[in-house]
């Protein structure tokens, strides 16, 4: 669905953000995009949506070059930015003005989602709180039934019940034709939601692997003492949270935060074990 090859991008000539980056994303997955501040998560999303243009390299989204901003591609992309704008109109007017541009928009599903998020239908969009606006935008984005959903920090500003609702709704929204790409700092919000992880580091994609392949190759466990098999560990109550090579084929639950920190500090070891680039 998305194929990025040799992507080079920089806002300033002397400070490249991406260097010869390669990335491929497929349908039917929810990807979690992680990276340090300034690693280029939002910029990567903007490159994919055609909001900014690469210095060199190619980006193909559903067979289109997003740079051309063709309506047929834009009608298949829902982009929920971190900082968003909603006009000062009533919900029905907003839907009447924007929904016709999305041929697969499902107004019944939209109302259903607003109901799940507990957003009153007749409220003016401008009068909503920040969190309500965000949930409104997420609902609209999902109701467009686009093939690609891009979300930049979608859980920022959501309260705890809304985060739970968000995870539930996103899990039910994924289909075989859809690809969801979620960028976030709050890795706990992606727990049990994503099925693939992308980690950006040092101008490139350090990890692009499915959750299953990560847990096949790495074992996340709590240990009392450090041993030579441990690749990375962080102190925790009563011992250490650790990552080690899953040579025994043990079942373990992916700890995104631990993986992220491990990649930041021991990228080569982790990526070698994950055989990256391992495209999903």
């Amino acid at each position: 669905m998305i194929a990025i090859q040799n992507l080079n991008f920089s806002y300033n000539k002397g400070r490249p953000l991406f260097k010869e980056m390669d990335l491929q994303l497929g349908q039917g997955h929810i990807y979690g995009l992680l990276g340090k501040n300034g690693a280029g998560k939002s910029t990567l999303l903007k490159n994919i949506a055609g909001l900014v243009y690469p210095d060199s390299g190619s980006i193909q989204v559903l067979g289109h070059n997003p740079r051309h901003r063709e309506p047929s591609l834009l009608s298949e992309i829902s982009f929920i930015p971190e900082e968003f704008y909603l006009p000062q109109v009533r919900s029905d007017k907003f839907v009447r003005a924007n929904a016709p541009f999305y041929p697969n928009f499902d107004s019944g599903y939209f109302r259903e989602l607003l109901g799940e998020f507990e957003i009153p239908l007749n409220q003016r969009v401008a009068d909503m709180s920040y969190g309500q606006k965000k949930k409104y935008l997420i609902s609209f984005g999902l109701a467009t039934n686009t093939k690609l959903i891009i979300m930049d920090e979608p859980t920022n500003g959501l309260d705890i019940p809304s985060k739970v609702q968000f995870r539930k709704i996103m899990a039910s929204a994924i289909t075989d034709e859809r690809c969801v790409l979620i960028s976030t700092h709050q890795v706990r919000d992606l727990d049990n939601l994503i099925d693939a992880v992308i980690i950006l580091d040092e101008h490139r994609v350090a990890v692009n692997a499915s959750v299953s392949s990560i847990t096949e190759n790495l074992c996340f466990k709590k240990v009392k003492e450090l041993s030579p098999e441990i690749i990375y560990a962080e102190p925790a109550i009563g011992g250490y949270n650790a990552i080690q090579h899953n040579s025994l084929g043990e079942d373990s639950k992916l700890d995104l935060e631990l993986l992220f920190n491990a990649v930041s500090q021991k990228q080569e070891t982790i990526t070698n074990l994950l055989h990256t680039p391992h495209y999903v």
């Binding site: 055609g50 009608s75 982009f79 909603l86 541009f101 999305y102």
Partner: peptide
């Protein structure tokens, strides 16, 4: 000139000519 609004306007599925 304002990023949030610019994203909203740029991504509306219509051609640049339109």
């Amino acid at each position: 000139g304002q990023k949030p609004k610019a994203i909203f306007e740029t991504l509306i599925p219509a051609s640049r000519l339109e």
